[in-house]
């Protein structure tokens, strides 16, 4: 198989991973960093900092993995490297 094409697939994969990990870090680590200022805001009945850490982050993690799986399925097909 064409070496350049394989390299391009890897570069795209790493880009997807980087974007998803930035989101991952923002909802978890970012949410903790600004927990104090967020704690005075109320959201859906929750103190916002508690909601971000207990729910938003966990739900984001689940969605991110399914998004990654689906993006990679498309990428596999685009480059013809699927099993």
């Amino acid at each position: 198989m064409d070496k350049e094409k394989l390299e391009a697939y890897h570069v795209e994969n790493v880009r997807i991973i980087t974007i998803l990990l930035v989101i991952w870090a923002v909802v978890s680590y970012g949410g903790v960093l600004i927990a104090k200022p967020l704690s005075s805001i109320s959201f859906l009945g929750f103190p916002l900092h508690y909601w971000v850490s207990a729910q938003l982050s966990v739900i984001t993690f689940v969605v991110e993995i399914f998004v990654y799986a689906s993006l990679m399925n498309k990428l596999d097909k685009k480059y013809g490297v699927e099993e």
Partner: peptide, 24 residues
């Protein structure tokens, strides 16, 4: 209280690392 959420995020957020960086 709130500080216990380190466990909730830690034990779920690890699966993102696992799914993107290791398992496949």
């Amino acid at each position: 209280g709130y500080d216990g959420l380190a466990y909730i995020m830690g034990w779920t957020g690890g699966y993102v690392l696992l799914a993107l960086l290791i398992a496949p």
